[in-house]
């Protein structure tokens, strides 16, 4: 018989997987399937029309673009923060470490209001930027700022444990073999951390795609310019067009699923290769 799983002496595979699947179906899969059925009410043509109007396409561009750039910045800065927090000792380190989780705990609406307060032309940061002619609040840049804020913890918290696990012995070995510090970085540290960086980047990207609460306060929400996809879903709902809202939501959902799937496959692949080394 074709084996769906590798044999193991450990018990409990059936019940645990069964419960996990049951719970997953109840909370996530069945409700999400409902979304598909709702958007199917439109028929294929109606579905395509609903998700391909110029306005929807413009907001897809903005949402994916801003989320990508936010995740990209976070991939680097998040790596830097994780490195500094795990490798160096400096005053205030623990406080900074704790603050990384702030975007999780702060309701997204509060984050949005706080960021708008800061970056508005009369805010602490906005008034300084205003003098040099940079506008952040109520522009696409505002969307980006909000997304950087909410997605930062994902990168830091993904890279941190890997860095903690990275034995200093490897770097010592590299150094004792005559490698300069930059060579150790390039050939030893970065390759080990790359999978975690990519995972962190993707989680941040995925999270940023769906963000609503913090963005609407700082975005300006102008059609074709600073209108994000979740807002369009909201607009469809306001018109009592549930199927149209579900259609846009379905596209977002598929995009996230494919993105996350690629990452997870990639990660298992690198993990296996890593294990085989």
């Amino acid at each position: 018989m074709f084996a769906l799983r590798r044999p193991s002496v450990l018990p409990g595979f059936g019940p645990t997987l069964g419960f996990a699947l049951f719970y997953l179906s109840l909370i996530v899969l069945i409700p999400l399937a409902g979304l598909f059925f709702k958007s199917a009410e439109l028929g294929w043509e109606g579905f395509v029309r609903a998700v391909s109007t110029p306005r929807v396409l413009a907001s897809f561009r903005l949402t994916f673009g801003a989320a990508f750039l936010a995740a990209l910045l976070n991939a680097f800065v998040g790596f830097l923060v994780a490195w500094v927090l795990t490798r160096y000792r400096f005053p205030g380190r623990r406080v900074i470490d704790g603050l990384v989780d702030l975007p999780f705990a702060l309701p997204t609406a509060v984050a949005g209001i706080a960021l708008a307060t800061l970056y508005a032309p009369n805010g602490w940061i906005g008034s300084i930027l205003d003098k040099v002619g940079i506008k952040v609040a109520y522009t696409p840049a505002g969307v980006w700022v909000a997304l950087v804020f909410i997605s930062l913890p994902f990168v830091v918290r993904t890279i941190q444990p890997v860095l903690q696990d990275l034995e200093p012995e490897i770097e010592e070995a590299s150094a004792s073999l005559g490698a300069r510090r930059w060579q150790t970085w390039l050939y030893v540290i970065i390759p080990v951390l790359l999978p975690a960086m990519i995972t962190g980047f993707s989680l941040a990207f995925a999270r940023a795609l769906g963000e609503y609460g913090s963005v609407i306060f700082i975005a300006g929400n102008l059609p074709f310019r600073s209108e994000i996809v979740p807002l369009l879903i909201f607009v469809q709902l306001e018109q009592y067009n549930y199927a149209g809202a579900a259609a846009i939501a379905t596209v977002m959902l598929m995009a996230s699923f494919i993105l996350l799937l690629i990452i997870n496959v990639l990660q298992r692949w690198t993990a296996r290769r890593h294990g085989a080394d």
Binding site: Y138, N221, L222
Partner: peptide
């Protein structure tokens, strides 16, 4: 001439 379209009147 509208620079920001909030979602509600209070906004």
């Amino acid at each position: 001439n509208v620079p920001v379209l909030d979602t509600g009147a209070r906004g």
